[in-house]
Structures are given as structure tokens and as C-alpha cells.
Design a protein around this nucleic acid. Structure first.
Lengths: 253, 253
DNA sequence: AAGTGGTCTAGACCACTAC
DNA sequence: TAGTGGTCTAGACCACTTC
């Protein structure tokens, strides 16, 4: 371990600043407390505001700070654990689902989605929008892509759009036999619409969870969920695990 | 869907720039190609270099670009899928493990780790350092924390440190009954040592995967793995899934 | 209206790579 | 040595929230 030669690099100012601020947060501030404004902080540390901001940005990325335009910078609470890999295989919309249907429409999906669904690139699919809350705050926004062939018995009687339509589509989905599922997590930045729903600015870092639901030997539904990367820790429960409460841990420094 | 009122926001320049560049990348550049340098690009678009850099930063975060000091900015290949949730429960170091032992030492872990392991905060544990490659590039660095009580039969004959020691510790670990495991993913920034191993600058965005290995009713080992967020897509295979090849997909725009 | 964070500029110098 | 991206400055103005 500790024997990597420190190679006389002049540490960037913002990096050092970040360390100093991080320690100050641990010892001198409590959750929710408001920090001095950026101009004052920069002056206090004798750096330009842009440099100070570079340090704050990193701390926000790590979930230590929360900044809101017009308000100020506050000390963030520890990240909330958000369960993603519920072990029991279940379709979206099954009982106990953490998501809330928001809307539904029929439209042509992005090419990458169409390819995964093996629908034609010009073929419209059902797109269900859902949102997920935790501790009173929005933590994720989801787009669920469902080919018409996955919900063949959807009646024209159901509402043509809106939450009622979304629920109808999800209800039909339950009729299929779920054969397996498949998940991927990657870093992304929030699109304008997701950002608004997550109460962040466009471009904010998000964890993008792509899930494929398999039935009848093909992808019967595809979910693209964007989680706030600053406030969320995605948890995956796997077989045999007892219940865990990570509590107010910090990442190993 | 599409009915969120567009509220007359003047789109920031860097955001618009990002969009323009993104489309240019799709249509006019191929993977590995070198972009014009930042000063030229900024001049070409009529913006300050800092603004141009803000756009490039986002594109790099999304895995579209790769920037290397002294070299230039190149078009990044699609993110590589890296399997994380191998369904078969197995201890680190089991056959077929994707990780390569690098080093091993005995030291006091960070407080958060000690708490998770339920060891005393001053009690040293084995710390195994491992690295993971994919397509010839380093994609992740890991610290594995193993309490002495989890490997009681570790003999003094084994090497006191280095890769041989690491292998010895891992070998002993296999003797325990793995009862379950537990995983979490969150966004972080690379520490200096991880950054060097991942061939990135300190502070680079990483996906931190924390895994707990349960045996004998407690946490017998804890792994903290940091994956390059720019180049990796973490994949989780779950029950029943057929093999999937996401291929050169892009995230749904 | 006052105060906050967000965007943007036009420079400068530094660290690193490649020739 | 020349060229690249990385850091830093000292300003300016804008968008947003709160009072």
C-alpha cells in the first residue's frame, strides 16, 4: 500500500482547497448548515472565485455539498441508499413498486432503444414516464419503453394518455411471463426534462440505470432510469443477504 | 411526455455548444480521431476557451471524448461493459475472477470500513490491492479489506507483503462459507493513488462499487472498487438472462 | 432590491507529451 | 522546443430566490 512514491507534484490549488474544505465540513459544520457565499469563501482562502468553485463542484459531485442558485451552498446529508436490484424478478408496476406513473404516450423511441427492443426504427412504442421519491425528494426519473406487441390486449377503452393510461399499460405488462432481466449502470448528465423533474440544472451528473425485461425470448420492455448522482447510492441486494443499514457512512477517504 | 412547457430559458452557450459538438462527433468524426485543439475550437465557435472547455468536460463525462494532456482530444470508443454482479456467489480470488492481485499490507482501515467490518477503529486488517483490466486498459482499482479473523489459518510462512501475500490471503478466504453479498454503487472522484492506477488525473469521476461479503453472520470482507466512469458501463446479470451484447449503442438521447 | 449561485470573457502560466 | 490540455486570475453580467 502506502509506498507509492509521492513524486514532487505541486498539488493544484483547488485540490488542496477541496481537502481543507472537506475537513472543515467534517469538523465545523452540521448537515443543512449554510456555508458563506462563494465570493467570501474565495476571498478568505485568497483564491479566485473560479478556483473556489472548482473545489465546490467536486465536493458537490461527491455528495458533500448542495448548491442552489439564489439560495446558497449547504452541507448535504449522507447519500440515501436506493434499492435497485430487488431480487424477486417482477415487472415494472408490480405491487410494492417504488415508482409512480406520471404519464404515457406513444412515440418513436431513440434508435438505440429501438435496436434493443428489436422494433423498427420508425415504429412507435408506448413510453411510460415514472418518477421515484425518497425521503420526500425526487431521486429518479424513468422512461419505460414498451413495444405494442408486449401489451396486445390493451383496450381502446383505456385513457389515451396520462397516468391512467400508464397504469393500464403496466397492468397489461403483468400478464407476460418474466424470464429474466438485465441491468447496466453508467454515468450520464441530465437532459433538460429529467433535470427539471429531479430539481437540478441540465447537465447535472446522473447515474443511468438501463434495465431490460425479457419475456418470450426477447426484450419485452426497456427502462432507462436516471438517478441523481449527488444524492443517491444505488444498492443491489443479492441472494442470501441479511438486511443492512449503511447509516451515515462516508466513503473510505 | 413532450408537453413540458419550454419556459423561454436562454440556453447557456456551453450547453448549445455541447449539442453541436455531439452531433458533429456522430456525423463527422470516427473513433480515435483527434479533434482540433481547444484554442482553435474556441475561436471557431466564437467563444472563450473556458466556455469551450465546459462543453468538452461534459462530453468527456458522458464518455464521448477522451482528453490527454500534452496530446490532444480524441473521440472515445463506446463504453465497455464490465460485469459486476456475477450471479454465482463467490469470494474474491475464486477461479475466473477478473481481478489481478497487486499488493497486500496490514493497516488500520478508514473508520467507515472498520464500522462495516465491526472491527475496532484501531484494529489493523489485511488490505489487498487489486486491479482490473479490460481491452488492455485499466478500468478499475480495488481495495479489499479483510479482518484477520476471516483468515485465521494464514501462516507466517507466506510472504509478508506483495502479490504473493495477496494470493495467500485470498486463498485462505475461500475456506469460509459465503452466505451472501451486498453491493452499492455511487459516484465519487478518484483519489491520487487510484487516479494513477487508472491513468487519469486525480479527481476524475469514478463509479465506486462497495461490496460486502457475508460469512458466519457478519461481514467477512469488504471491497471498495473504483471504476473509470468515463469508459465503463457496469453490467449486472440477473437470473434467467440470456447473453446480451449491447454493442456500440449510445445512451438514448 | 439585495444577495445567491451560474455563465462567460480574455488573458496568463504550468505540466506534460512528442518530436 | 513546440504544441497540447490543465490551472488560475479578476473581472462582468445573468437567472433565480428571498424579503
Amino acid at each position: 500500500m502506502g509506498t507509492t512514491q509521492l513524486e514532487s507534484v505541486p498539488e493544484p490549488k483547488y485540490w488542496h482547497l477541496k481537502t481543507v474544505l472537506s475537513e472543515a465540513l467534517d469538523s465545523e459544520f452540521s448537515v443543512g448548515e449554510i456555508l458563506p457565499n462563494e465570493r467570501d469563501l474565495a476571498a478568505r482562502f485568497g483564491v479566485a472565485r473560479a478556483t473556489l468553485r472548482q473545489a465546490l463542484e467536486q465536493l458537490e459531485l461527491e455528495g458533500r455539498l448542495q448548491r442552489r442558485r439564489g439560495v446558497g451552498t449547504t452541507v448535504a446529508p449522507p447519500r440515501v441508499g436506493v434499492a435497485v436490484g430487488t431480487e424477486e424478478q417482477a415487472w415494472p408496476g408490480a405491487a410494492g413498486d417504488a415508482w409512480q406513473p406520471v404519464d404515457c404516450a406513444e412515440a418513436v423511441p431513440p434508435a438505440a432503444v429501438a435496436d434493443a427492443l428489436e422494433t423498427g426504427r420508425d415504429e412507435p412504442v408506448h413510453i411510460v414516464r415514472r418518477s421515484r421519491m425518497s425521503h420526500g425528494q425526487p431521486v429518479a426519473a424513468e422512461l419505460l419503453y414498451i413495444p405494442a406487441s408486449s401489451v396486445p390486449d390493451l383496450t381502446a377503452i383505456d385513457a389515451p394518455s396520462g397516468p391512467a393510461r400508464a397504469r393500464a399499460v403496466l397492468r397489461e405488462l403483468q400478464h407476460l411471463d418474466l424470464e429474466g432481466q438485465d441491468r447496466a449502470v453508467e454515468l450520464g448528465s441530465a437532459r433538460a426534462d429529467d433535470a427539471k423533474e429531479l430539481d437540478r440544472l441540465p447537465g447535472a451528473p446522473v447515474l443511468v440505470v438501463t434495465s431490460r425485461f425479457l419475456a418470450g425470448g426477447r426484450t419485452a420492455a426497456l427502462s432507462v432510469a436516471t438517478y441523481r448522482a449527488d444524492t443517491c447510492r444505488l444498492t443491489f441486494k443479492e441472494s442470501g443477504g441479511v438486511e443492512i443499514d449503511h447509516g451515515p457512512e462516508r466513503r473510505a477517504s
